[in-house]
Design a protein around this nucleic acid. Structure first.
Lengths: 224, 224
DNA sequence: ACAATGCTTCGCCTATCATCGAACTATGAA
DNA sequence: TTCATAGTTCGATGATAGGCGAAGCATTGT
C-alpha cells in the first residue's frame, strides 16, 4: 500500500524534502530524514518500488526525485488533510535539543538558528527571493562586508550558487545554504562564535556565550 | 501523520468500505476489515482523531462516514498511485482459504463465490445497475422463480432494498446484499447446498459437493 | 594500482502498534 | 427490572519493520 510508504516518518521527511521538485542524492535525503545512509537506502528502495520516487544515476551519486506531479499532488493533498486537523508534526526529528537548535547541514548552519538567520535576512531585504532561487541584494553585500568582513569575491564559485534555500529538517522551513551559507558558517567558526561539537560525526554546533549574543545582534528576531 | 492512518491495512479496508459515501456502523466496519470490534474501535478513534472519518450517533449505533469530499479525493489519489504500480492488494484479509471462498456477510453470501454470483447476474442482465443502486430486472424475477422458487413478494420489505451492492472484503469487489442476497443465502441453506460452519461465530460457509455443482450451473463463470 | 567516496546488503536488535480476550458502559427492548 | 446488543477501555501478546553496525560492491580521483 502506498499510504504506508508515506506514513513512515523518515520516508515522509524524505518526500517532503523532495517536494520542491529538485532531485537529491541518497545521502542528502538521509541527512534530511536524520537517519543513517543504510536506513535511507532501505527506505529509498521501498519508495522506488512503490513508484513514488525515481532514481537517476550520475557518477557515484544516485539522485532521487518525485516520479511526477501526480505524486506531488497526492502528497500535497495529504499535507492538506494533516494541516487542517493540526495533526502533522509528529516530532520525528532529532530528540537532542542541541541538534534542533543548531547543527551542520553539509557545510552551513541549520536548525532553529539557521532558519532564524534566513528569516532575518529576508525580512531586512538583505536577500531577495527570485523564483526558486535566492540572491544577495546590494544592501546585503554591504551588510556582509561591514559586519562580517565577507567580500563578494569570496562568494563567487564556478558551479555553486551564492544563496540557496535548504529545507530544514527539524523546523520544516528553509535555512540558508549555498556559498554564502557555507562562508557564514566558516566565519562564525573563525570568530569563535561557534564550533562543531567535538564528538566525531556529530552535527551539533555549539555557540559560545559571546557568539550567541553577537549572532542575535545581527540575525535576532526583531519585533518591529 | 495522516498517511500512516491510511497505511494500516485494516484502516484502509474501513476507508475503502466508506468510499461509496454511505455511513457504516462500527461493527459493520469491523466486519469489512475482518477484525474484532475492539480493534475496530481503536482504529476508528484514531481515524476520527485524524479527521478522516466523522461519527454520528444514532441510538446505540455509531455511524461513521468520511468527513468530506477532500478526504475521499485524497483516498482516490492514493488508490490511483497504488493502481499504476500494481502495488495495491496487500492481501491482508482472512488467511483462511475457506473464508476467502465463501462466507457470511451479515446474512448473505460473500467471498469469491458471492462476487462471482453478482458478476453472473449482472452479465446475464438479471440485475441492472441504476446509479448507486441495483435493481432486479423482469428476466431476473423470472429466473429466480423458475430455478429457485423465489417469488417477488418474498423480496418486498418495508425498509430494506431488494438488491444492494456490498463491497467484498477479501475480493475488493462487490457481492450481492439486500433482501435478495439474504433470501438467496437462505434458499441455499434450505436446499442443503451450503451450511454455515459449525464452529460458533465462524463466518465460513461450507458448500456441499452437489450444492457447489448446482451453484456453478446457475452462477458459474461463463466464457462467452 | 590505491585510496576515497557513495551507496547497498546483511544481520541483529528494539520499539512500536495491531490484535484479541475480558471486563465495563450505554442504549434499547421485553 | 432484566436481558440483549453496540461499543469502548484495559492489559497482555506478538509480529512487523525501522534502526544501526559491519562489511561489501561500485565509481571516481590521484
Amino acid at each position: 500500500m502506498v499510504a504506508s510508504l508515506v506514513g513512515d516518518p523518515a520516508r515522509a521527511n524524505m518526500l517532503t524534502a523532495l517536494m520542491n521538485g529538485r532531485a537529491l542524492t541518497a545521502s542528502e535525503l538521509a541527512q534530511e530524514a536524520g537517519i543513517t545512509p543504510q536506513t535511507a537506502s532501505s527506505h529509498l528502495s521501498k519508495l522506488e518500488a512503490g513508484g513514488l520516487v525515481a532514481p537517476e544515476k550520475q557518477g557515484r551519486h544516485r539522485y532521487y526525485r518525485l516520479t511526477d506531479d501526480d505524486v506531488a499532488g497526492v502528497l500535497e493533498g495529504l499535507a492538506g488533510l494533516a494541516a487542517r486537523t493540526g495533526h502533522m508534526r509528529v516530532r520525528t526529528g532529532p530528540k537532542d535539543p542541541a541538534l534542533r537548535r543548531a547543527r551542520i547541514c553539509y557545510d552551513h548552519l541549520a536548525g532553529d538558528l539557521g532558519v532564524q538567520m534566513l528569516d532575518s535576512l529576508r525580512q531586512r531585504q538583505l536577500v531577495r527571493q527570485k523564483k526558486q532561487d535566492i540572491e544577495l541584494t546590494t544592501e546585503g553585500a554591504r551588510f556582509l562586508a561591514k559586519h562580517l568582513q565577507i567580500s563578494p569575491d569570496m562568494l563567487s564559485h564556478p558551479r555553486r550558487p551564492v544563496c540557496k534555500a535548504c529545507l530544514d529538517w527539524s523546523e520544516r522551513r528553509h535555512h540558508l545554504a549555498g556559498m554564502l551559507g557555507a562562508t557564514l558558517m566558516q566565519r562564525f567558526a573563525e570568530l569563535k562564535w561557534a564550533t562543531r561539537d567535538a564528538t566525531p560525526g556529530s552535527r551539533v554546533v555549539n555557540f559560545t556565550r559571546i557568539g550567541e549574543k553577537q549572532f542575535a545582534a545581527l540575525f535576532g528576531n526583531r519585533r518591529d
